[in-house]
Amino acid sequence: MSIMLDVKDLNVYYGVIHALKGISFHVNKGEIVTLIGANGAGKTTTLQTITGLIPARSGSVMYNGREIIHTPGHQLVANGLAHVPEGRRVFATLSVYQNLMLGAYTRKDKDGIEATLRTVYEHFPRLLERKNQMAGTLSGGEQQMLAMGRALMSNPEMVVLDEPSMGLSPIYVNEIFNIIEKIHDSGVTVLLVEQNANKALSIADRAYVLETGNITIEGAAQDLANDPKVKAAYLSE
């Protein structure tokens, strides 16, 4: 198994606040890896640093063997690394179709884009039904689907998902997790940040627990799901 994403000793500051205190983790090609942890542990900061939205103070982020820590955010998606941001952040005043096509912004292969669009509509039939509707008028679950579909439009090798189940009804949560598995089955490597640790551990291969800027526990998702400390802190129903 080859390492696709390798984060080493990553330090991030917000002003004087030391948000990520030298964390290291990796994602192998073909895996689903999840980062779990409480609010404010640094999960979103980790993802935003990887995809270039927040600058790191020090450390290294290797993607497919290339250092990307100083690569401008907008150049990453063309290298196959797509990010579904926290809070979905769809373009509310644009149509579903326009949102999806913006996902394919860096691609030039017209036929390939058409093919990906068909795949995305297969994953998310709801998006096809609503393709001319303004994204802002969609429900939260539908917006999450759109955010995921938009990321898939770039034909990524790896997707980082930030709290895809946040604020959704249980039915949608199940649907979103099913789709994450489907996306993974189609050959996409997944890095998943979730507060719903139960669900995340149930589909992940490996997991890391993030606590106030440090990784405190790591291992196979199965093992973490049975770890008493993890159970007590994150899996209370």
Partner: peptide
């Protein structure tokens, strides 16, 4: 609409 989200799409803001 959203500079951050545009960046994620690969748009050079």
């Amino acid at each position: 609409e959203d500079k951050g989200a545009a960046t994620l799409m690969g748009v050079d803001v």
